[in-house]
């Protein structure tokens, strides 16, 4: 299945979004592993500090995913 990850904040230099191909039954931890492999090592620490979310909530690492899910990676926040 394909999962799209929208990029925000310090991930913006890598584009608007990244599409990842995963096995059926994958959860958020699989997205994290594939996303980490797809980006250079200088942002791996930032990925470890970041959370994945959908449009409604921040997701647990073991949250299951639907086919064609659209997620967002949220680096540490700095609004206000």
């Amino acid at each position: 299945m394909k999962v799209t990850v929208q990029l925000f904040g310090a991930f913006r230099p890598f584009g608007e979004r990244i599409t990842i191909e995963l096995s059926d039954g994958a959860d958020v931890s699989h997205v994290r592993a594939a996303f980490t492999a797809a980006l250079p090592s200088e942002v791996h620490e930032l990925i470890a500090l970041s959370r994945f979310a959908d449009a409604r909530t921040v997701l647990a690492e073991d949250a299951p995913l639907d086919a064609d899910s659209i997620l967002a990676i949220l680096p540490p926040v700095s609004g206000g």
Partner: peptide, 30 residues
């Protein structure tokens, strides 16, 4: 809002450089 909302600040400096401001890491429930 400063610690829970998904918002990111990129500062632009007078010397032409720009940087994303380090922030607060989110937990599952925000």
């Amino acid at each position: 809002i400063k610690t829970r909302a998904p918002v990111w600040k990129q500062e632009h400096y007078t010397d032409g450089d720009s940087e994303w401001v380090q922030g607060h890491a989110l937990c599952q429930h925000g």
